[in-house]
Amino acid sequence: MDKLYGKDISMYDDIDVEDLLAKLTTEEINILAKEVDPDDSFLPPSQRCSYDCDKEPTGPLNRKLLIEYINKKAIETPDLPELKPFVAGTVRGKKWVPPAPPAREQEAEEKIAVDLGEEYEQALCEATQDEIIDLAAILGFHSMMNQDQYHASLLNKGQPLGLGWDGITKASKPKVFPMEPPNMTDPEESIQSVKKDENKYVELNWNNIKSISDEKFENLFTALGENTHLETIKLANTGMSDRHADKLAEALEKNKSMRVVNVETNMISPLGIVRLIKSLLKNKSVEEFRAANQRSQVLGNKIEMEITQLVEKNGNLVRLGLHLEYNDARQRIAAHLQKNIDHTRKMRMGQLPRNQMFSGDLGENERTV
């Protein structure tokens, strides 16, 4: 039963509010308007403020003088005396006590119980604190232990002395690793080795060499097209651009011995990456291609779908190092690479003839090439 100020309001259900408002005078309506809820969303913002001033303005608004006047009044107005003086360590007024949780929550907490069985119950009851910490690390409960305890459990070194559930991990000194030595490969010498098609020269590593000119790139890719022994070429962080990628793609289309191509951390555009992956269809020997961390971090849906279609037509590629944003492209490429890996394993184990290759455009079927 609804009540207002302790009185039953059901007796006012049949009263028409419109008739009551029609009987009010202008002064009574103004008084009623001041009592309206200012948070009523049905009223415009200009009518939600109860401030009402009938005085005429004495002059134009001067914001600076108004602020000075307000500050002066605030300084001159004395503070209201405290009803109860402040004493350090004492609580003035009524102290807030949090209410008790509802009975339903208490009953639910009491009913929650896990029956582990007598064997597990006995094992956990007799387990030491170090054994429980090791168990928590195995189950992945990282929040139950500190970093030293977690790593000690994984490495089976035994728990540090003096560290329990409330132990504090001290800062450990970071391991100092030696700086990676600079790449001392001579570009001119390596280009000559590729031109001569030396039998023992199977890997070219130009990683992190930034002083390579366009002429050296062009000479290398020209010699690469005729080489028959080089299997791995690493050109990460060498400043390659689209014009270099186009020359490399032309060389890969002619080369028949390359197995690993790495052009990561360069300035190749998404269209340049598509051009390189398209060249692998004519190469038919590259098994690993890496081109992540380029100038454009996001390839875009159109480029990723085009790369996916090219990879699905490639029956030799088993590893692709490329950041893909869309799940569809990642899943389709991962599924196709797995098929290529399975097919390669069957050929290695002698379950398929050597002259039979997997054709990506036929799904799981196979044809003789």
Rank of each mutant, 00 (worst) to 15 (best):
residue 143 S to D: 15
residue 28 E to Q: 10
residue 3 K to T: 05
residue 188 E to Q: 09
residue 338 Q to I: 10
residue 230 L to R: 04
residue 302 K to V: 06
residue 269 S to Q: 03
residue 287 E to S: 12
residue 250 E to R: 10
residue 268 I to K: 02
residue 129 Q to R: 06
residue 18 E to A: 09
residue 187 P to L: 03
residue 48 R to H: 02
residue 37 D to V: 08
residue 11 M to L: 11
residue 166 D to Y: 00
residue 27 E to F: 07
residue 318 V to S: 13
residue 112 I to G: 00
residue 100 A to R: 08
residue 347 M to N: 00
residue 94 K to M: 00
residue 350 G to S: 04
residue 69 Y to Q: 05
residue 267 M to V: 05
residue 157 K to S: 13
residue 303 I to H: 11
residue 88 A to V: 12
residue 179 M to S: 12
residue 34 K to S: 06
residue 28 E to L: 12
residue 250 E to P: 00
residue 219 N to A: 14
residue 36 V to C: 10
residue 96 W to D: 11
residue 247 K to N: 04
residue 192 Q to C: 01
residue 39 D to W: 10
residue 271 L to F: 04
residue 31 I to E: 15
residue 252 L to W: 10
residue 84 K to N: 11
residue 145 M to V: 14
residue 15 I to Y: 08
residue 177 F to P: 01
residue 348 R to N: 15
residue 212 I to L: 14
residue 221 F to N: 03
residue 287 E to C: 12
residue 285 S to G: 05
residue 210 K to H: 02
residue 366 E to S: 13
residue 183 N to P: 06
residue 245 A to V: 01
residue 253 E to L: 09
residue 194 V to T: 08
residue 59 G to L: 01
residue 306 E to K: 15
residue 25 T to Y: 09
residue 50 S to A: 14
residue 320 L to K: 10
residue 237 N to Y: 13
residue 311 V to D: 06
residue 83 L to K: 11
residue 321 G to L: 09
residue 359 S to D: 15
residue 267 M to A: 07
residue 210 K to G: 06
residue 133 I to K: 08
residue 260 V to S: 03
residue 297 Q to F: 01
residue 66 L to K: 05
residue 15 I to K: 09
residue 274 V to E: 10
residue 240 M to A: 07
residue 88 A to D: 07
residue 158 G to I: 09
residue 78 P to W: 02
residue 242 D to I: 02
residue 171 A to M: 15
residue 37 D to F: 10
residue 36 V to Y: 10
residue 163 L to K: 14
residue 61 L to S: 08
residue 197 D to V: 11
residue 43 L to W: 12
residue 27 E to G: 12
residue 248 L to F: 07
residue 309 Q to E: 08
residue 29 I to K: 15
residue 280 L to M: 06
residue 142 H to E: 10
residue 285 S to W: 03
residue 256 K to C: 04
residue 5 Y to Q: 04
residue 256 K to E: 08
residue 237 N to S: 04
residue 217 F to E: 11
residue 173 K to I: 15
residue 271 L to M: 10
residue 211 S to R: 12
residue 63 R to Y: 02
residue 197 D to Q: 06
residue 69 Y to H: 11
residue 107 E to P: 04
residue 243 R to C: 15
residue 21 L to C: 15
residue 232 T to C: 05
residue 253 E to A: 13
residue 79 D to K: 05
residue 65 L to M: 07
residue 245 A to C: 07
residue 135 L to Q: 13
residue 38 P to K: 10
residue 306 E to C: 05
residue 123 A to L: 04
residue 16 D to Y: 07
residue 270 P to K: 06
residue 57 P to W: 09
residue 140 G to T: 15
residue 56 E to M: 12
residue 65 L to W: 07
residue 337 L to C: 14
residue 142 H to Y: 15
residue 258 M to P: 02
residue 259 R to G: 04
residue 353 P to T: 01
residue 73 K to Y: 07
residue 32 L to R: 09
residue 188 E to R: 02
residue 254 K to M: 03
residue 195 K to I: 14
residue 170 K to F: 02
residue 176 V to W: 00
residue 10 S to L: 15
residue 54 D to W: 02
residue 308 T to V: 03
residue 295 R to K: 10
residue 131 E to I: 00
residue 338 Q to C: 01
residue 187 P to Q: 13
residue 324 L to A: 08
residue 280 L to P: 08
residue 79 D to Q: 15
residue 246 D to P: 01
residue 136 A to V: 02
residue 357 M to L: 06
residue 366 E to R: 03
residue 214 D to Y: 11
residue 312 E to G: 01
residue 307 I to G: 01
residue 14 D to W: 03
residue 125 C to H: 08
residue 22 A to V: 03
residue 360 G to N: 03
residue 228 T to I: 04
residue 263 V to Q: 05
